[in-house]
């Protein structure tokens, strides 16, 4: 990986292993295994993969909901993988905010919208109730809700509105970066666009950096500048969205792209699906794979012989 330090978030060899049981029954799950990537300021980096591939765990480890097993993480050059001190927690929570998947689960049912959205301000020492209220109203306005909504409880809102409240809660502390974990996948089709558009507007307006985690490649592709594809805890390919779509290199990326149903009856009827079977598609018995930059901005997890083949494919 390029050693440039123009990344706002840099993750190096991040591992997150969960173990359960003891002794003989001990089970080690490598949820995230040696993952490295960097996110540039004001960029949207998409993390895509299927359920259980470790994309959510990666996001949650970055914001330190989990303590990483090993690896390095830097935000604006500051180490954020070290032991959790009060100072570090403050630094993290001031700079990175998170948007969650489930619009029902992610809002406390016992708190009003004003309390939910204003909480970030209050714990940062804003005592003046009117000031908090004014900021909350301003933020609600920004996400397309009104002052009148502030005194309501979450259960009174529809899924899309709740997700916008979640965004307002994350944005009110003016973070530099947002980790959006499947922010639209639990929403109805007609509502997803509202939320995607809102995130796009906020990104433009506030110069946000976004780590966008989703399983829907169309949405990730639309939303992200660069995309990392994850498979079973590993990043297998990182590329700019268009490159990834035009010339996917890793067989898993190809399989993923070929599986997405497009709303077009003509292409759908003739679509050929590509299967991915790691046993069949790779021979790593002799050569060990590593993350290699095949073309500018295009990284693939491959062995030297595969690299050669990929380079040929790209016409290099």
């Amino acid at each position: 990986m390029a050693e440039e330090s123009n990344y706002i978030l840099e993750v190096k060899h991040l591992c997150q292993h969960f173990s359960s049981g003891r002794g003989k029954n001990k089970l080690l799950v490598k949820a995230v295994d040696d993952v490295s990537f960097g996110v540039r300021p004001a960029e949207t980096f998409g993390l895509v993969g299927e359920s259980g591939c470790g994309k959510t765990t990666t996001g949650r480890t970055i914001i330190r909901l989990y303590n990483p097993t090993s690896g390095e993480m830097y935000f604006n050059g500051r180490d954020i993988a070290g032991p959790m001190t009060k100072d570090l927690r403050r630094y993290l929570t001031d700079n990175i905010a998170m948007i969650f998947q489930d619009p029902i689960e992610s809002l406390n049912p016992r708190m009003t919208i004003e309390e939910i959205v204003g909480e970030g301000l209050r714990i940062r020492g804003m005592k003046d109730k009117d000031e908090v209220r004014a900021r909350v109203h301003e933020m609600l306005e920004k996400v397309g809700l009104t002052e009148e909504h502030a005194t309501r409880y979450p259960h009174e809102f529809s899924g899309g509105q709740r997700q916008r409240i979640g965004i307002a809660r994350a944005m009110i502390i003016k973070p530099k970066m947002i980790i959006a974990d499947e922010p639209v996948s639990a929403l109805d089709v007609s509502i997803q666009a509202q939320v995607i558009n809102l995130l796009n507007d906020l990104k433009e307006e506030m110069g946000l950096t976004i780590l966008f985690i989703a399983h829907n490649l169309s949405v990730v592709k639309y939303f992200s500048d660069r995309i990392g594809v994850m498979y079973y805890g590993r990043l297998v390919e990182i590329a700019r969205g268009d490159d990834l779509y035009r010339c996917p290199l890793h067989p898993y990326t190809k399989a993923l792209l070929s599986a997405i149903p497009e709303p077009n009856p003509i292409t759908e009827r003739t679509r050929k699906r590509i299967d991915y079977d790691p046993e069949r598609d790779h021979d790593y018995s002799v050569e060990k794979p590593t993350m290699v930059e095949v073309a500018p901005e295009h990284f693939v997890y491959c062995s030297p012989s595969e690299l050669e083949q990929y380079q040929k494919q790209l016409g290099l």
Binding site: V189, Q192, L217, S218, Y245, E262, P263, N264
Partner: peptide, 10 residues
């Protein structure tokens, strides 16, 4: 409905 979801070229 048709225009609210991005496809890979949007």
């Amino acid at each position: 409905l048709l225009s609210s979801m991005p496809d890979l070229q949007t």
